[in-house]
Amino acid sequence: MISCSEAVRQLWEYLDGLVGDRELESIEAHLARCRRCCGELEFARELRGTLERASEVDVPDAVLRRLTQTLEDLEP
């Protein structure tokens, strides 16, 4: 079985579906037996969600107006 540090090193890749079949099998075998790494996995999932939720950015009206004006001013 892989060690906790090996499993933890690959948790984000595991969540992203970026690990190969062999790694997938060894991570899942590890997770089935290790409660702490399950906690790490759950936290990695939450942290990823935190990043996703921070992606929404409001555009100030004045900025949008200036950028739209830039487009209007473009000449062939």
Binding site: V57, V59, V63, L67, L71, E72, P76
Partner: peptide
């Protein structure tokens, strides 16, 4: 006409582009 089509395409993308830039360069986004 080509310029007008570009304006239409780009105008739709402005909020998204600004959002990406804000996360990459902060206050230099505009």
């Amino acid at each position: 006409e080509q310029a007008e089509r570009f304006r239409l395409l780009a105008r739709e993308q402005l909020p998204r582009l600004y959002g990406i830039a804000r996360k990459l360069v902060g206050s230099d986004a505009e």
